[in-house]
């Protein structure tokens, strides 16, 4: 069986980040990851991973984490 939805979301965020790993410009990569998640993830999924980020977030790759932090700041609470 597969993991929980949170695990799936973490994995997906990390996978997106891995696909922008090549980008040497860190700022550009983080912005691209953030935009991607903003454009394709339903709010439910974003909220879930934000909650995880607030509590722990250790399973997130550095760039995924930065992107999500940025999104979380902009998200109307």
């Amino acid at each position: 069986m597969s993991g929980t939805s949170l695990q799936n979301n973490i994995r997906m965020a990390n996978q997106i980040a891995r696909n922008f790993e090549f980008e040497q410009d860190e700022e550009k990569a983080v912005a691209a990851i953030a935009t991607h998640i903003q454009r394709f993830w339903a709010p439910l999924m974003r909220e879930k991973i934000f909650a995880y980020l607030r509590e722990d977030g250790s399973g997130l790759a550095p760039r995924a984490r930065q992107a999500l932090e940025r999104l979380m700041e902009n998200e109307p609470a």
Partner: peptide, 15 residues
Amino acid sequence: EPGLRIPNMFDAALD
């Protein structure tokens, strides 16, 4: 806001 994609629906259902 974007909605859930098929695999996301399955995950959200199990949640």
